[in-house]
């Protein structure tokens, strides 16, 4: 049963920073990825739809976690940045006819530039002040979505074609699943790896003590902007994926509520943990779906329920955030680690 030593016997930093700590975890992760690639053949469209939403949310949540969880810069603008990505992808594919495999990274880069621009205040502002500045950024960008009609199409939005690869249209939940999964895997892996580099360590040091970090030679301006750019790149990719998934881009999909949802994902999942972002994204995407199916089931007995289900969703969402903050402030990832630690020593855990 035990697949890892119950002590820490690493003898070099390289070993400590290895991506896969043991062969067993490597096998498990590869098996998990293989399973992910094979499940769509067994799942119905509804489940695929939920999975696709999860993949998009994971990308956005990993991005926000890099900024907020690892670098400690609170952002209330993730929703708006996703919107920038979506509109950028839409505009590029409509105006220049770019294929999706160019439009998505390009949209990511455009969003990264946006993010870096709105990250400039982060040099002077910290904590609360920064989060308020990003709140302003959220509202100003949202205003731009509605008002800059020659790019965004105003309130009616943009309507784009499905992504297509060599004549094959990615127009179903099934085919989109593979696209979203592939991009999600690449982005998650990039996120994990980034945290093992100099930049990742610089982010952590800025979070833990920015004055000490600066004294040790870390260029705050550069790394804070990098964090904003990287995080916005993720948001942009997530947003452009969303654009290709729904093919209709309208401003109300990128409101402050979306930003709050992403923040709640990383809070519930665990700040400063890529795995936590994944847990949180899964949880927050599934929660309203579960409530919806509950209301569909119970609606037969309590017809009033279907009318107020929207409010109930919002209330439960808030309640979940509160409960997590009060009883598990480090998020689901801590629970996961505890469970893992328990099984490590099983059956001799005290």
């Amino acid at each position: 049963m035990s697949y890892v030593n119950c002590g820490n016997f690493k003898t070099s930093y390289e070993k400590d920073a290895e991506l896969f700590q043991t062969t067993f975890s490597k096998i498990l992760i590869y098996a998990f990825i293989a399973a992910l690639f094979s499940v769509p053949f067994f799942l119905g469209d509804y489940y695929l739809y939920v999975m696709n939403l999860i993949f998009i949310a994971v990308i956005g949540a990993v991005g926000l976690n890099i900024l907020t969880g690892f670098t400690g810069l609170i952002s209330l603008g993730q929703g708006a940045f996703m919107g920038v990505g979506a509109y950028a992808a839409g505009y590029l594919s409509l105006t220049y006819g770019l294929p999706f495999f160019i439009a998505i990274p390009a949209a990511g880069l455009i969003t990264a530039v946006f993010g870096a621009f709105f990250g400039i205040p982060s040099l002077r502002l910290k904590g609360l002040y920064l989060s308020i500045a990003t709140l302003a950024a959220q509202f100003i960008i949202e205003f731009g979505f509605v008002r800059l009609e020659f790019i965004t199409g105003g309130v009616t939005g943009l309507s784009i074609d499905y992504a297509s690869l060599a004549g094959y249209e990615i127009d179903s939940d099934f085919s989109f699943y593979f696209l979203a999964l592939a991009i999600c895997l690449v982005m998650t892996l990039a996120g994990v790896n980034m945290m093992r580099t100099r930049a990742g360590r610089a982010f952590l040091s800025i979070r833990d003590n920015y004055i000490a970090a600066e004294a040790m030679g870390i260029n705050l301006f550069r790394y804070k902007l990098t964090a904003f750019a990287v995080s916005s790149f993720y948001a942009g990719v997530a947003g452009s994926l969303w654009a290709y998934y729904t093919t209709i881009i309208t401003p109300e999909n990128f409101t402050i509520g979306v930003s709050i949802q992403y923040l709640s994902m990383i809070i519930i999942g665990g700040l400063g943990s890529i795995l936590g972002s994944i847990f949180g994204a899964v949880f927050i995407v599934i929660l309203p779906e579960v409530l919806q199916s509950f209301s569909d089931w119970a609606g037969g007995y309590y017809p009033n329920l279907t009318q107020i289900i929207g409010s109930i969703k919002e209330g439960v969402f808030g309640l979940v955030i509160i409960l997590f903050l009060m009883f598990e402030p480090e998020g689901m990832v801590r629970r996961w680690r505890l469970i893992k630690a328990y099984w490590k020593l099983w059956p001799f855990s005290y």
């Binding site: 989060s131 923040l263 809070i267 969402f317 955030i321 509160i322 903050l325």
Partner: peptide, 26 residues
């Protein structure tokens, strides 16, 4: 929440606001 990081406190009040809004709507 006393002594918790600022993001936790912000999120807690955001959670409270969702709950209050939902109760009023219901």
């Amino acid at each position: 929440m006393i002594g918790e990081p600022i993001i936790s406190i912000i999120m807690l009040t955001i959670g409270l606001s969702s709950v209050m809004k939902a109760v009023v709507q219901i």
